[in-house]
């Protein structure tokens, strides 16, 4: 055995060569930028929008601005509604594909995965084309004489929520699918045997035992939903901004990088706090895929 160990060592590159590149990439592309964002958030800008490196908490104080608070609550509201809709659509769907014995199971599962292969920005543009006043949906509605004039679907909070649900529902379905598939069928039989109808079995057995999936799915929908600025940009047209829009604007048009950095830091902290709560409630970190 010791010989094979020696061979193993002799046939393997030194640890520094094996792990080194990963460490370098992690440090350069994740740690350094994060530290940079942290430093940036405590800087200020002069009248020409140049970043001056000094330490101040002014940016964080500015975040408590009335207008910003409105957007935070609006963003949280959108994220909450999106998560709720994802659960309501995702749960029955996941339940069906996890429990069905038909051969369609694989096809249905693939239908969830395939959209990932196309860039989500392009797919959201697709929705804009579909929903626009000259879009297919309006053409079809007019052909069917359901409406005389094109209906304005776009640039409303509803359109943003639709886009968010569309983009994020796979993140709800996959953890739900896993938790429902793990559910032992004999538990449902036992419940039925002891006198519970299907509704009581659902409330007393199925729901509590799949709550982990619901919770990790919710986390994976809720958090990105706060940041997916392109969805509200393209479909919401500035009427339903999320926190991501605020950040984007500070870096782009607003040209106020320190403020944007402070917002990013707050979003990261909120995200970590939510993950911590999830962990505290007994959530499985593997289910999040992190």
């Amino acid at each position: 055995m010791s010989k094979s160990r020696l061979n193993f060592k002799a046939n393997t590159l030194p640890a520094i060569v094996m792990v080194g590149p990963v460490v370098v990439i992690m440090v350069l592309l994740i740690a350094v930028p994060l530290i940079y964002v942290g430093i940036m958030s405590s800087c200020s800008i002069d009248e020409f929008y140049n970043v001056t490196y000094n330490f101040t908490l002014e940016n964080y104080i500015r975040l408590a601005n009335q207008d910003y608070l409105k957007i935070y609550s609006q963003s949280i509201c959108i994220a909450f509604i999106t998560t709720l809709i994802c659960i309501l659509i995702g749960y029955p769907f996941s339940y069906f594909i996890a429990r069905t014995k038909s051969k369609k199971k694989k096809i249905l599962y693939m239908l969830v995965i395939i959209p990932f292969w196309t860039n989500s920005l392009i797919r959201i543009y697709g929705w804009r084309t579909f929903l626009g006043t000259n879009g297919w949906l309006n053409i079809i509605l007019q052909l069917l004489n359901i409406t005389d004039e094109p209906i304005d679907f776009l640039y409303k909070t509803g359109a943003t929520v639709l886009g968010m649900v569309y983009c994020l529902i796979p993140f709800m379905i996959l953890p739900l699918y896993t938790s429902i598939e793990k559910l032992d069928v004999t538990l449902l039989e036992a419940s039925s045997d002891l006198g519970a109808g299907s509704m009581k079995t659902f409330v007393n057995v199925i729901l509590p035992l799949t709550s982990g999936g619901i919770f990790s799915g919710s986390l994976m929908v809720f958090i990105p939903c706060l940041g997916y600025f392109f969805v509200s940009d393209i479909l919401g047209g500035g009427n339903s901004d999320v926190i991501g829009n605020l950040i984007e604007r500070q870096f782009q048009g607003g040209n106020n990088w320190p403020l944007g950095a402070a917002l990013s830091i707050v979003l990261i902290v909120v995200t970590l706090a939510l993950v911590k709560v999830y962990q505290k409630l007994g959530g499985d970190m593997d289910a999040l895929g992190v």
Partner: peptide, 13 residues
């Protein structure tokens, strides 16, 4: 009638 299952089927939660 009631059943005792081979795998016990106790509700884990």
């Amino acid at each position: 009638v009631n059943t005792v299952f081979q795998s016990y089927a106790l509700f884990p939660h």
